[in-house]
Design a protein around this nucleic acid. Structure first.
Length: 270
DNA sequence: CGTATTCCCTGCACGC
DNA sequence: TGCGTGCAGGGAATAC
């Protein structure tokens, strides 16, 4: 499923095919994904030149002078640049045809994704309250430490709160907490500054690594497939409940924390 | 305000 | 083989 590294990899893969191109046509096969697709997407985008494609958190913004298309891949969405003769498949909800003849196609079986509109100079409400980028300059251990004071929720919930820091989903929260040796159950407000420094470092390291890996397998976006490059066998904790801890061999525990399946090592993570 | 719960949707892995 | 069931997930909406 697309997490921040997959979204960033998607952005990087699409950019060479989209930058500077003119949009020839927009085809909406479905009027809604998670929310209704606003009319501007179909009425304003055709004829526009693509100034660039940006990422903010797990959102992608396709910028034009008329405004920006705001996309989220949800958990099953994908964007591909395809040759014009590639047949439409199930769940191919939106086509954005380019002047090159290629088509930017949005496929999303579960429709947790969205396609919305952001007028020029405005910030969409969905982007309004987002926290800092984990790979940006303003995210570090002190940020987590200060944001966590007074919080009684488990640290895993804090880490996945997009108002605190963006882009850390269930997989990377589990992996970062494992790497930092912090129990996901620990009360966020009771964790030391030093331990948050370690956690922030691990978040950055793991996300950066995953982006590097994704980048190697998603190079060619003009192709019918291309799976995300973060392979399951590289995960230490996520999805491995009941299996031995890769560091100490103890049986990894699994429980539901903040409504999400969570795996951790009861010996390594305190 | 912070925290917990519910819901959206479909594909897939199960068990019978 | 085919059915039913439960689960997965981001994050907004809702409830406390």
């Amino acid at each position: 499923m697309p997490e921040l590294p997959e979204v960033e990899t998607t952005r990087a893969g699409l950019a060479p095919h989209l930058d500077g191109r003119r949009i020839a046509a927009v085809a909406l096969r479905r009027p809604d994904l998670r929310w209704p697709i606003p009319p501007e997407v179909a009425t304003l985008l055709p004829g526009q030149r693509i100034a660039g494609i940006r990422r903010r958190a797990k959102y992608l913004l396709l910028d034009t002078e008329a405004g920006s298309a705001l996309l989220h891949l949800g958990m099953s969405g994908s964007l591909r640049v395809l040759a014009p003769d590639v047949p439409v498949r199930a769940h191919d909800h939106v086509d954005i045809a380019l002047d090159t003849g290629h088509v930017l196609r949005f496929n999303d079986p579960r429709r947790f994704g969205c396609l919305l509109w952001q007028p020029p100079g405005q910030t969409h409400p969905l982007l309004q309250d987002l926290g800092p980028e984990p790979l940006g300059d303003t995210f570090d251990g002190d940020h987590l430490f200060l944001a966590s004071r007074g919080r009684r929720a488990p640290v895993k919930a804090l880490l996945m709160d997009q108002r605190i820091v963006v882009g850390v989903g269930n997989i990377y929260a589990a992996e970062a907490l494992f790497a930092a040796g912090i129990s996901p159950l620990r009360e966020a407000g009771k964790i030391s500054r030093a331990r948050y420094a370690r956690l922030a470092d691990e978040v950055r390291r793991i996300l950066a690594y995953a982006i590097r890996r994704g980048g190697t397998t998603l190079r060619d976006f003009i192709s019918p497939d291309g799976a995300p490059g973060y392979f399951e066998q590289e995960l230490s904790a996520y999805g491995r409940g009941g299996a031995p801890c890769p560091r100490c061999g103890a049986v990894l525990r699994q429980a539901t924390i903040a409504q999400r399946a969570t795996v951790w090592c009861p010996r390594c993570q305190r």
